[in-house]
Design a protein around this nucleic acid. Structure first.
Lengths: 202, 202
DNA sequence: GTCTATAGCTAGATAGAC
DNA sequence: GTCTATCTAGCTATAGAC
């Protein structure tokens, strides 16, 4: 279906180059469809971009619900929460650039409906944290901080590894999506849980 | 001096909106100077942007050298390393958006000279890490990972707090540069050091 | 070193045929 | 639902006067 094709290509392009750097003409070239056709399906460029953002947030939320289903152990739930972001990236790698651009713009293209989804994510994380056996100094710690550690680190590391620049070029993770995401999964989960949880006593 | 004024305004604008979203016309409007004057001082838009990136990296490096000077204790050196980024943000808040946009683009506007500065930063961090009393599992750990935890977290958290969106709106850090940077300084330094270093035995 | 004036192009968007 | 054709506005960049 054309409408979906437009959305997919648009997602890729907005993610790679950011909102302003993408022209409707460039989309037309890739889609091999007429420009007026895009405007038939989407009111304007902003509406198309907004749809792209919304879909990416929905996918993230859907993955979270899927991966957490049936899991009760608090640490495993936290792990699944983090993994759900990585899963979303695995399915739609373009999402990283999309979100980094949006955060870099200080959310200037976000509206209230999208803001609410983010707030809900952080609220969900807060509940996960409250179930964990936290060290006393991390009880009632700012969940936005933990959210930034998760998201900021994943996005930044993924972007550096997937960049074609010769940064960390000799690493086995370089330009390898699966290796990079698997590494982040193991490393970051342990890193955060070890930092904030009381030591195991079994 | 005009050349410097152009650079300062350009830094702000590129940071706020990203490379493509900034037009030479918009710079002219803010500068109240003729467009041809910009082209007298800078070859073209790309050259101007490149200069902005280079300056921002140089400032970061200069702050690192200043803040680490004379400090020998490994943990304090690590703290000073992290603090140097926060100091750079304090002096030039626009730097956060600038770098997030660049990372989101997977470094598509970086050339070899800028890449080298980043590599040198990570190499420096690696030496700092080697001096620390690391837990065995973090010996020879990927310094790019630690770099991403530092940079990704700072950038993401700062952007969220400074965004005018109603995300974490009730926090005392919201829209307050100094509080946010001070909080990051204390929280993140302890967080990382506690995670990777052996427990104190004194 | 800063200006006026303008070239040459590409952007986002739409009217109307099919 | 997709096309052709086209509008207007804005873009980067430069030639040449002062």
């Amino acid at each position: 279906m054309t409408k979906e094709r437009i959305l997919n290509i648009a997602s890729e392009e907005f993610s790679k180059h950011g909102y302003s750097a993408v022209s409707m003409n460039s989309l037309v070239r890739r889609l091999e469809v007429n420009k007026a056709t895009i405007y038939y399906h989407y009111k304007d460029k902003k509406a198309l971009y907004h749809e792209v953002l919304k879909i990416s947030l929905s996918e993230s939320k859907a993955n979270r619900e899927k991966l957490l289903m049936g899991i009760t152990d608090p640490k495993k739930r936290f792990h699944a929460f983090l993994k759900s972001f990585l899963q979303t990236i695995k399915e739609k790698p373009y999402i990283v650039g999309l979100w980094m651009h949006e955060v870099a713009n200080f959310g200037s293209n976000m509206d209230e409906s999208l803001t609410l989804i983010v707030e809900e994510m952080v609220l969900f994380l807060k509940e996960l944290l409250d179930e964990l056996p936290l060290k006393s100094e991390y009880k009632s710690c700012n969940p936005y901080m933990i959210f930034s550690i998760i998201h900021g680190t994943i996005d930044n590391f993924y972007a550096v590894q997937m960049s074609s620049l010769p940064i960390n070029a000799q690493s086995s993770l370089k330009l390898n999506v699966d290796n990079t995401l698997n590494f982040l999964d193991g490393f970051l989960t342990d890193f955060i849980l070890n930092a904030i949880c009381q030591k195991e006593s079994k």
